[in-house]
């Protein structure tokens, strides 16, 4: 079944043109009865910091709503799957930057390396995920991650009137982080932050399969100069940044 979808993608030119014309367009209209993650895919993100407005937080808001991420009102313990970081040059020269930071879904994720129960794991399509049923809350992954991508759920989350039923609520005492909206990807969709960025922001986030040479993100990664955060650590992150 996934092979079908893969070969559809492989038709290349025509569809790639379509993707370029309408980023965020759903390739598969209705979810199929059974789907499976494909080891042929590698999801990645390219963030154009030139398009990122310091005052815009639509990606953060969309993530909170989509993934039922609660706010406790305590900055030290609030959970952030995605956050906006402001960068100010230390020497005062050059412009300030603003950019979103989220889990980088590394090819060599240190969080997965240190997890004693394999609760943090790499899915076949390269996503770094947490099996919440298996996390013992030891927090070693939070020590190991250089991107501060992870949060522990310190308190019982406040009751909230509205929930996205497709994503579970929080369990106290486990560690969590961005999933690239895996539930949306499995239905052929895009992460909520990317969608919000193109709808409400300036469309600075591009998401797709870098194993597909014709995907918009593959093409753009070849055209523009981009970097990752802390490439010296050798983690090979899959969130790329343009303009820093």
């Amino acid at each position: 079944m996934t092979m079908d979808r893969r070969s559809v993608l492989g038709l290349g030119g025509m569809l790639a043109a379509g993707v370029l014309l309408a980023p965020g367009l759903r390739l598969v209209a209705a979810p199929e009865e059974a789907t499976e993650a494909s080891d042929k895919r590698r999801w990645a993100m390219l963030i154009d910091t030139n398009q990122c407005d310091p005052s815009c937080t639509s990606c953060m808001k969309a993530c909170r709503v989509e993934n039922n991420v609660p706010l406790f009102g305590d900055p030290k313990r609030d959970i952030h799957w995605i956050r906006k970081v402001e960068l100010r040059p230390k020497d005062g020269k050059g412009p300030d930057r603003s950019l979103p930071m989220l889990c980088n879904h590394c090819e060599n994720p240190p969080c997965v390396h240190v997890c004693p129960t394999q609760a943090s794991f790499i899915r076949k399509d390269g996503l770094v995920l947490i099996d919440m049923h298996r996390c013992i809350g030891c927090r070693y992954c939070m020590i190991a991650c250089p991107y501060k991508a992870r949060s522990l759920v310190y308190n019982e989350p406040p009751e909230s009137a509205s929930h996205n039923r497709k994503v579970p609520r929080r369990a106290m005492g486990v560690v969590e982080k961005c999933t690239f909206c895996v539930h949306r990807l499995d239905e052929g969709g895009q992460p909520a932050c990317v969608e919000a960025c193109s709808n409400e922001g300036k469309g600075g986030m591009l998401f797709g399969d870098v194993n597909d040479p014709n995907s918009a993100i593959s093409q753009k990664l070849h055209q523009v100069l981009s970097t990752t955060i802390r490439p010296d650590l050798g983690l090979k992150p899959r969130v790329h940044y343009q303009g820093i």
């Binding site: 997965v112 390396h113 240190v114 997890c115 004693p116 129960t117 394999q118 609760a119 298996r134 996390c135 013992i136 809350g137 030891c138 927090r139 070693y140 522990l152 759920v153 106290m172 005492g173 486990v174 560690v175």
Partner: peptide, 20 residues
């Protein structure tokens, strides 16, 4: 541990790359 009720899980699912 955040979830001490699951403290035996490391025995069931071992990750030999983890120092733990």
């Amino acid at each position: 541990l955040g979830r001490p009720d699951r403290m035996l899980l490391p025995m069931l699912y071992m990750n030999f790359r983890s120092m733990f």
